[in-house]
Simulated assay, not measured.
Amino acid sequence: MRGVDLYDDPAFLTGYRELRREKRGLNDELEIPAMAGLLPAVDGLRVIDLGCGEGGLAVRLAEAEAGGAAEVLGVDASAAMLARAVAHPRVRYQRADLADFELPAASVDLVVSSLALHYVEDFEELVGRVAAWLVPSGWFVFSVEHPVVTAPLVEGTLDDYADEGPRQRTWFGRPVVKYHRTLATTLATLQRHGFSLQAVQEPLPTEAQVAAHPHLAIHRRRPPLLLVSARLAAN
């Protein structure tokens, strides 16, 4: 079972939604504010949200200050997640697997993805498609689990970092497959497809955040997330 399909499993989805509701994950304290800081001004832009889940990021983009995005298409493979997606007049949703989702060339201004691309096996091919969808000078901003998290731990030590490929972990009692890529591979792939790096971030919780949310303490020891902002060449 692919990682994204797990969200259609009722027991798994219940566990995930409880995690988000109780704010025991990384989203509210780390990923969402870091993503907001990397995004360009979205007013009037045509946006695609890859792996949109229940539409939180898509709606935030549509409701951004000074008018928000002109239109946002949220794409996700999970029917259960899309059934709970937040409605908004400038947001629409489409069920599709990111491995074969297609758009017309030069049809969008911004592609975003929040903690979904580590489920994609062929990152090179996906980045090529994203580059084709974007207009010249278009933006690609995304977050993934950090490579030091997707690499395996052996006796408490990071191991086999250079060996890229699938990694199976257990989450809410279910096996989940994510794809490990080194930081160098991720950044070099973007550059090969005509992107220039605008920002690379590895957000860590502050001491105040750890005091308020003790489950974040382990994330002071190594970065849990990688965020990248990249821009396509002008021509």
Rank of each mutant, 00 (worst) to 15 (best):
A162R: 12
T185D: 14
R181P: 02
Q198Y: 14
Q198N: 13
G173P: 07
L158H: 02
L158C: 07
R167V: 13
E155P: 10
A188E: 06
L190A: 01
L187C: 06
L183N: 00
R167A: 12
A188Y: 08
R181H: 11
T186L: 03
G173L: 09
S196R: 12
G173T: 10
V154G: 05
P175Y: 04
L153K: 12
R192H: 11
P152I: 06
T185V: 14
G156C: 07
G156T: 09
S196V: 13
F195T: 03
P152Q: 04
K178A: 15
L183S: 02
P175V: 05
D159W: 08
T170D: 11
P152K: 05
P175L: 04
E155M: 10
A188L: 08
Y179D: 07
G156V: 10
R174H: 11
L190Q: 00
E164W: 08
L183I: 01
S196C: 09
G194S: 07
T157F: 05
T189A: 00
A184F: 06
E164F: 10
T189R: 00
L183V: 00
L158S: 03
F195C: 01
F195P: 02
G156M: 08
T170C: 02
R167Q: 15
E155C: 10
K178F: 14
E155G: 14
S196F: 09
P166L: 08
G165N: 08
T186S: 00
A188I: 05
L158T: 07
P152A: 02
Q168K: 06
Q191F: 07
L190R: 03
D163I: 13
L158D: 03
H180A: 06
T182E: 08
L187Q: 00
R192C: 12
Y179I: 04
S196M: 08
K178R: 14
A162Q: 10
R169A: 10
F195R: 01
R169H: 11
H193E: 03
L190N: 00
E155D: 14
E155W: 06
V154Y: 08
Q168S: 11
E164G: 12
S196D: 13
Q198R: 14
H180S: 02
R167I: 10
Y161T: 10
L183K: 00
H180F: 07
D160P: 07
G173D: 06
G194V: 05
D163C: 12
Y179M: 07
T186D: 00
R181M: 05
R169V: 12
E155R: 13
R181Q: 11
L187D: 00
Q168L: 05
R169F: 11
D159V: 00
E164Q: 15
S196Y: 11
E155Y: 08
H193I: 00
P166K: 00
Y161S: 09
D160I: 10
W171Q: 15
D159A: 14
T157Y: 02
